[in-house]
């Protein structure tokens, strides 16, 4: 071919449209905000019914996770995600979706090697590095406190 890799990279860059980062960010901001606002409404609801602060937090997370998994199973969360991008990935509902989606996809490979093994294929790294980071931060906090 009469073309160098660098030159071709430049050609590819020129013809390939980029993702609409600005519009996507706005959509993500609003959908993410709505999910968090729903969380806040739930928080106030449970708090008003006399649950302790700790239990209220757990209840809010449980409801959001359950709803997100339900929406995933109905194939609706992917539509929200297609519109909202990071707006529905970052909140806890996105985490629930990331666990439920591979579990559904790999159900046919059985409960152990399918659902069990593949469930954390996307969320697993988040758990691993989340835990590792919290340990590191904890150690630093212990010494600088």
């Amino acid at each position: 071919m009469n073309v160098e890799q660098k030159q071709y990279d430049e050609m590819v860059k020129q013809v390939s449209p980029k993702s609409a980062v600005f519009m996507n960010s706005i959509k993500a901001f609003f959908v993410g905000g709505i999910i968090c606002a729903i969380g806040q409404v739930l928080y106030n609801f449970f708090e008003a019914r006399g649950f302790s602060q700790e239990n209220t937090g757990i209840l809010v997370a449980s409801v959001l996770i359950t709803v997100a998994i339900l929406l995933t199973a109905l194939g609706l969360y992917e539509r929200i995600g297609k519109f909202a991008g990071a707006g529905s990935v970052v909140p806890i509902t996105g985490f629930a979706n990331a666990i439920a989606a591979p579990a559904i996809e790999h159900k046919k490979e059985g409960l152990v090697l399918g659902v069990g093994a593949k469930m954390f294929v996307i969320a697993g790294p988040v758990i691993v590095y989340g835990t590792v980071t919290s340990v590191i931060v904890g150690i630093i906090y212990y010494f600088v406190r």
């Binding site: 993702s19 909202a84 996809e105």
Partner: peptide, 13 residues
């Protein structure tokens, strides 16, 4: 790629 039900965006290309 990803499981079908995962809420992600596809790039224009």
């Amino acid at each position: 790629r990803f499981p079908l039900e995962l809420g992600t965006q596809r790039t224009p290309t």
